[in-house]
Amino acid sequence: MSPGANWQRREVDGQTRLFLLGDWRVARLDGLLKGFDWSREGQACAVVALNELEAGDSATLALLMEWTQAQATKGVALQICGMSQPLQELVALYRLQDMLRICHE
């Protein structure tokens, strides 16, 4: 795992965002998620920021879909910002545009 593979909650323009950092591909997720609890880390977040994500794959998208559904049960429409072109191409390939709210900043 790269030393920066982690997450941070930050305030941006008065909004709490969850920034994913480093490599969140399937090979790295197991160890990383052992220390991550969405209900604690993401509870006040309406935005997941991928601007600082070094790498992601279909496992990353599956995780984002799970978080989107978790927030939807609370009445929160989770937005995903800063998605790289390769991840956007995977979203299109798997036809996930209607499931994931991707913002284009």
Rank of each mutant, 00 (worst) to 15 (best):
27 A>Y: 02
10 R>F: 00
36 F>S: 06
49 A>W: 03
32 L>W: 15
1 M>N: 07
52 E>Q: 13
62 A>H: 07
48 V>L: 05
73 T>Q: 13
68 T>V: 00
56 G>I: 09
45 C>Q: 01
35 G>K: 14
69 Q>L: 12
13 D>M: 12
72 A>Y: 06
20 L>M: 09
99 M>I: 12
16 T>N: 14
104 H>I: 00
64 L>K: 15
67 W>Q: 12
26 V>F: 00
62 A>T: 08
37 D>G: 06
44 A>C: 03
13 D>H: 15
98 D>N: 15
67 W>Y: 08
20 L>C: 04
66 E>S: 01
65 M>C: 15
42 G>T: 04
14 G>D: 10
33 L>H: 03
87 L>P: 02
44 A>M: 07
79 Q>F: 01
14 G>V: 14
77 A>D: 14
7 W>R: 10
59 A>N: 14
32 L>P: 13
57 D>C: 11
74 K>S: 08
67 W>M: 07
63 L>R: 04
12 V>R: 08
23 D>P: 07
36 F>P: 11
2 S>K: 08
41 E>Y: 04
88 Q>K: 14
57 D>K: 09
58 S>D: 02
93 L>R: 07
52 E>T: 05
93 L>Y: 05
53 L>Y: 13
74 K>E: 15
26 V>A: 11
103 C>F: 00
41 E>K: 03
51 N>A: 11
71 Q>C: 09
66 E>T: 07
46 A>G: 15
64 L>A: 14
57 D>M: 09
9 R>V: 15
51 N>H: 07
101 R>Y: 03
61 L>V: 04
53 L>G: 12
36 F>Y: 12
46 A>W: 03
101 R>S: 10
32 L>E: 08
54 E>P: 00
30 D>M: 04
1 M>A: 10
19 F>N: 11
30 D>N: 13
18 L>S: 03
71 Q>S: 15
18 L>I: 11
26 V>L: 04
86 P>A: 10
33 L>P: 05
22 G>V: 02
77 A>S: 08
57 D>R: 10
59 A>W: 05
38 W>S: 01
96 L>E: 05
14 G>W: 09
7 W>P: 06
79 Q>M: 03
61 L>C: 14
20 L>E: 12
97 Q>H: 14
